[in-house]
Design a protein around this nucleic acid. Structure first.
Lengths: 129, 129
DNA sequence: CTACCTGGTCACCGAAGGGAACTTCAACGA
DNA sequence: TCGTTGAAGTTCCCTTCGGTGACCAGGTAG
């Protein structure tokens, strides 16, 4: 009732490239709130777990753990056990994760550049609509 | 690869630019799962509400409405009432939203390019760890 | 010993998000 | 005329997600 089974017009929006749902999922996993923070922080230099917590005070341990696991699973960061005796781990960005750095910088640059316009739009929307 | 270690300042690390929490919030509002879909779709051409639903079948009305409101509030899309008698609205991307298009394309391009590597990493993580 | 650090896990809980029905108004059809 | 369809949502319900704080195991500093 909702879907229209017309395979003829199914490929009506073939813009430039084929974008698979899988690509979207990947972006979902990698571009979320904390991932951006973590990747951005780790791009500077490797960090210990609690070092990351201090660098990003607003994240909780649980969310940080989850984010690091997710990024590790996707090959963006690497979990390195530095010391056994006093257990110490270090997280560092991988070569694959590094390919994201330019994009993250671009995103942060964009948000900084257009923030005034966005705040203006928000004020208009909130106040006069 | 990493900037020269800075033992003197144990302060926050100001890499190149100051990134405010506000910028992160903006990216959170604009880069979420459905926003990427919607912006990408609207970049092609303006669409009606149900046209968007058909273009992005996996989104629910509720989420689509919420996404469009959020994007509208942030000045990314514009809600245009075309016809009053049979109520008809059209959503179109704004000039501000258009500044995101390059970034979105870059993100989709990145995900397409590195998807194999990511899937490889996932297989390694899931299977042998 | 106690206190505190590291690197987590666990149980609870409120908010966010999805599914599906319902709404309103207008048009179409027999 | 009544029923159905379509547009553009809204409302309710329920599940899931993410945050909070507690807790744990092992080391180590006082």
């Amino acid at each position: 009732m909702v879907d229209t089974p017309d395979p003829a017009s199914a490929q009506e929006q073939t813009t430039t490239v084929q974008v698979t749902p899988t690509q979207r999922e990947l972006l979902d996993e990698v571009l979320d709130k904390w991932s951006l923070h973590v990747l951005d922080t780790l791009c500077e230099r490797p960090r210990r777990f609690n070092e990351l917590r201090r660098a990003i005070p607003v994240v909780t341990q649980k969310s940080l753990t989850a984010t690091l696991r997710r990024l590790e699973r996707n090959g963006m960061v690497e979990r390195v056990v530095i010391s056994d005796r006093p257990v110490a781990v270090e997280y560092r960005i991988t070569a694959l994760g590094d390919t994201l750095q330019d994009l993250i910088d671009a995103l942060l640059g964009w948000s900084g550049e257009h923030l005034p316009a966005v705040e203006d739009a928000r004020a208009r929307f909130d106040g006069e609509d």
